[in-house]
Design a protein around this nucleic acid. Sequence first.
RNA 1: GUGGGUGUAGCUCAGUUGGUUAGAGCGCCAGAUUGUGGCUCUGGAGGCCGUGGGUUCGAUUCCCACCAUUCACCCCA
Length: 425
Amino acid sequence: MLTMAPKGTRDILPDEIYKWYYVEEKFREVANRFGFREIRIPVFEHTELFQRGVGDTTDIVQKEMYTFNDKGGRSITLRPEGTAGVVRSYIQNGMSSWPQPVKLFYNITAYRYENVQKGRYREFHQFGVELFGSADPGADAEVISLLHLYFNELGIKNLKLNINSIGCPVCREKYNKILKEYLGIRLGKLCETCRDRFNRNPMRILDCKIESCKNELVNAPALLDHICEDCAMHFDKVREKLITMDIPFSIDKGIVRGLDYYTRTVFEFVSENIGSQGTVCGGGRYDGLVEACGGSPTPGIGFGLGIERLLLEMDSQNIEVPLPEGPDIFIGFIGEKAEKLAESIALKLRTAGIPCEKDIMGRSVKSQMKYANKINARFAIILGDSEVESGKAELKNMSTGETKDIHIDTIVDRLLKYKQGNKNE
RNA sequence: GUGGGUGUAGCUCAGUUGGUUAGAGCGCCAGAUUGUGGCUCUGGAGGCCGUGGGUUCGAUUCCCACCAUUCACCCCA
């Protein structure tokens, strides 16, 4: 137990971190291109923020939060997602008086107490984007196109984009009446949980996976067919824009975001290759959220993108990420005088910005060379008494095996030139 | 919370029809004439065979429980 990471958490080791750097840098870069700026928010917030911002009736709040009292008696919760914290920050920092729209992105860990399975962990990583201040369908399209571009540039194929509209509170209320009429007559045939949902959140019944319930629901009215005129027009425009931008999508009337404050557009990017938790990215519009959290009415839209799932998908598609490079040079030595020389050269190289390693294991020359090979050093040099005396040494190119006699004083210059692209040096 | 699979070396996995010192490949460390890697060869380190209990003369092997892990349900990233 002492030597085991807690359930649902894991280490990201040096051998795989380059993949993380790669997708992180790409995400920052693409988000910046769209004018989104990075925000960093706390890992924990007041519990009530999530109760409000995520919604009291959701599974997340009801059973998945890491909640505890701090020593001051405050109820604190580790963030189960990113949106609520960003919304809080938007309000707290008066972002409504920033130039509009406010476009933010983030790279966070999040925490949910759930059973672990493929692509689902208790501590997981998300990229996200939140766009405040625009109710325009263009904002929806922009956020979705950001994702489309991002996946494209990573080389990911075949992620399926599903979109839907769940209307506004007004149309949802109307729809709920219609749905309840439909369900009311069939209530007896539904499972226990569904009967429970009937009063609390009838829309969730449509999500039920139990066969007998599904059978009763085949002809159930879909929310999309009952949204009001404004919402329908909004949805039409979003679709038009996606078509104009050549972004393929399907309409999935079944997407019903569990989070309470979602309005109008909801969407997800789904994979079929990474197990049953195939949603790589989920998002939508939340025009009521800022107000619900205590701010003035502000439209918003955003998404969360699961990094673990993204990486699983990239693996399943055999997408190659450029491997990290080894140090430019390994400095080996034998003897005390040579060691001092090696130390001073290593410091000069490092000061000049040249990655280099020097033996600190007291190994034989042969073993030092083996090590230089394992760490994928570009060059190696071995210093001994004769090198100390003559000021010259053999610089060995580790990939070709060629050696060149050089003056030790010139080593920094030579490697700098090499790095500047003069690979012939 | 529920159900199935799996726990033997750092990793991937053999194996013992229950019987003394538990194996391979990879990885790690070192050596193959004295100061030069990759290939090859040799050697070495490293296992309470997940934990606890039961059956037995004897358990890593059979049984039970627990724990961990994994996949799935629910839900979500």
